[in-house]
């Protein structure tokens, strides 16, 4: 069965493999990490990869592999929480705008237009600078600034669905609007939202690591892949392993989510197969 799934959906298969391994890593970090990710050992600093330290050690003598394993917790949780927040906001805004139309729709979509003119990353940077960097703040800020695409998507789906007979039937029997939206409209728009959410987790992980890389994200000594790169960039000339492995971890994780998302798109909507991101 696995073989058949693999040959029919290679994207989802590989994406699934990467993400499963990663989640396992994050869940079992305290047992599989060979060293304490935070304890410094200054006599062992900047050691190249060896049999004792597979990915070498950093400038404080901490084991890079262990920090990488613990860092997966930060990336996964930021991705998951941030995306949940913006899916919630985007779905609410999009379905209200699409369902009610009129001035509500006009006002909400103008707000979306305005937000689209400000580069999201700049917006996030500004807000982070004011409220201060911490994991929770990052999750919330990515969540409240990145919902515009979801809102547009859901609005489009709702607009297409609301003229269909089953929605009109629901309205005719006197169902409340909130119930129509929650029970009949949204479940039918779930597919594309799920795809966007999966791809979005990869995107949120990229944003988190960029912020941590700029020193405005997860603060040391808590290991995150972004702040490992930030600390490693000062040793560009004498410790290549400090920037190579964390970057590779980010890349593989985001790749995993992208593969999974695209695979999901193929699975849910065969018409779009091979047509790329819309």
């Amino acid at each position: 069965m696995i073989k058949r799934f693999f040959s029919h959906h290679p994207l989802m298969f590989w994406g699934g493999v990467i993400i499963t391994l990663l989640v396992l890593c994050a869940l079992t970090a305290q047992w599989i990490a060979p060293y304490d990710p935070i304890r410094q050992n200054l006599t062992q600093n900047l050691l190249p990869p060896s049999i004792h330290h597979w990915m070498g050690t950093d400038q404080y003598g901490r084991d890079v592999l262990s920090r990488l394993i613990y860092g997966s917790r930060v990336s996964l949780s930021v991705g998951l929480v941030a995306v949940s927040i913006y899916i919630l906001i985007g779905t609410t805004v999009g379905s209200v705008a699409g369902y009610y139309g009129g001035w509500v729709d006009g006002a909400l979509m103008r707000l979306v237009d305005i937000l689209l003119c400000i580069p999201t990353f700049f917006l996030i940077l500004m807000v982070i600078a004011f409220v201060g960097p911490s994991i929770i703040n990052i999750m919330v800020i990515i969540g409240v600034t990145s919902w515009t695409d979801v809102a547009r998507l859901v609005r489009g789906e709702v607009l297409a669905l609301k003229e269909r007979e089953f929605i009109q039937a629901a309205r005719v029997i006197g169902m409340k609007d909130s119930r129509i939206i929650l029970r009949h409209l949204l479940p039918n728009a779930l597919g594309p939202v799920l795809v966007v959410a999966t791809l979005g987790i990869g995107g949120a992980i990229l944003v988190e690591s960029s912020l941590s890389f700029l020193g405005l994200g997860v603060q040391p000594p808590t290991p995150s892949w972004g702040n490992m790169l930030e600390e490693g960039k000062d040793h560009l000339t004498d410790a290549w392993w400090l920037i190579t492995f964390p970057g590779m971890a980010i890349f593989l994780t985001v790749l995993g989510y992208n593969l999974l998302g695209e695979g999901l798109r193929d699975l849910l909507d065969p018409r779009l197969r091979g047509s790329g991101r819309q």
Partner: peptide
């Protein structure tokens, strides 16, 4: 190639090029 492109963090790509 485009999957790789979508997934690679640009700042890491920059660091590797610098290296």
């Amino acid at each position: 190639f485009s999957f790789v492109g979508f997934s690679m963090p640009s700042f890491w790509f920059a660091l590797m090029l610098m290296l």
